[in-house]
């Protein structure tokens, strides 16, 4: 049921999404560009190629694939992808993090923004929610998939491992968990802050089918996600370790935890946009 778009076309969309991200965080001088840029290819692949979904938003999402963002701080990429795929008007991206906006700092259902099914931001909760949604699908005889994205620093949270134990133990095999494995968290590298060790061995030991991919290679992302869907339905959930570069696509932001939660200044914005050529129309920045 893949959407009929070429890889070249969605690569172009990902560039525009990256433009949106840096423009959004620049406009409000806050937010999290690093992880957002790193996950742009993944979210574009999901919403423009891999998932069956309906931008005429309905909370239950019956008959649709669902996506949950557990690491809610990368809201800029989520909002851009939702807007660019038709959930709401792209002009609304200009309201990000501003008063009276539906685009809160971290995603929420509270303001009724189409496309968001759960609040996230306090880390570690998204896999549990995705499990619940996946089990509701099973009870409803709905054979579509549930996707969830977490960070890697987020794996420090204990609830992640409660959920990691549950999903294989209870055969939640319509669930695809992706880890943004960029090796960075706020206080430095994950190796320094809280070593994850052999993460693949850990998730496999918990009973997940594990895949790895380069999250900044669109061909590989689409191919791996399609493969993951094919591995569902056999009694085990799937975990994808997605190697990304934090800040990918903007050279001076790449690979450093320093751009986790810092907005570019005017000069840095100009420098970033020079590297990201508009493929769709930019939304207008409010005066």
């Amino acid at each position: 049921m893949s959407q009929e778009r070429s890889i070249e076309e969605i690569k172009g969309i990902a560039v525009q999404v990256r433009r949106d991200i840096v423009r959004m965080v620049h406009a409000c001088q806050s937010g999290h560009p690093g992880g957002s840029l790193g996950c742009a290819d993944f979210l574009v692949a999901l919403y423009f190629k891999v998932m069956k979904h309906n931008p005429q938003f309905n909370m239950d999402g019956t008959g649709e694939d669902l996506f949950f963002l557990s690491n809610g701080h990368i809201s800029p990429v989520f909002y851009s992808v939702l807007a660019r795929s038709g959930y709401f008007n792209v002009s609304e991206l200009a309201t990000f993090r501003k008063i009276n906006s539906r685009l809160q700092g971290h995603p929420t259902t509270h303001e009724g923004l189409p496309g968001v099914r759960i609040a996230s931001g306090s880390l570690g909760q998204g896999i549990s929610v995705a499990i619940g949604a996946a089990q509701a699908k099973k009870l409803n005889g709905d054979d579509r998939f549930v996707f969830v994205l977490t960070g890697d620093g987020e794996l420090d949270e204990g609830q992640i491992w409660e959920a990691a134990l549950y999903a294989p133990g209870k055969k939640v095999d319509n669930l695809i968990w992706t880890v943004d494995y960029n090796g960075q968290q706020i206080d430095g590298s994950t190796d320094k802050v809280m070593p994850l060790g052999d993460l693949r061995a850990k998730v496999e030991a918990f009973g997940w089918q594990a895949l790895e991919m380069n999250g900044n290679n669109m061909d590989e992302v689409v191919e791996t996600l399609e493969k993951a869907k094919g591995m569902c339905g056999q009694g085990k959930p799937v975990c994808i370790l997605m190697h990304t570069g934090m800040g990918y696509g903007v050279d001076f932001m790449m690979g450093s935890h320093k751009w986790h939660g810092v907005a570019p200044n005017d000069e840095q914005l100009a420098q970033a946009l020079e590297q990201l050529h508009s493929t769709l129309e930019d939304y207008e920045i409010a005066k």
Binding site: M59, D60, G61, T62, L66, F68, R117, I118, Q125, G126, I127, S128, V129, A130, I131, G132, A133, A134, Q135, A136, K137, L139, N140, D142, Q159, A163, Y166
Partner: peptide, 11 residues
């Protein structure tokens, strides 16, 4: 969390 997720789908 699972309980919250189950409501998405009408439970």
């Amino acid at each position: 969390g699972i309980a919250a997720g189950l409501t998405i789908g009408g439970k």
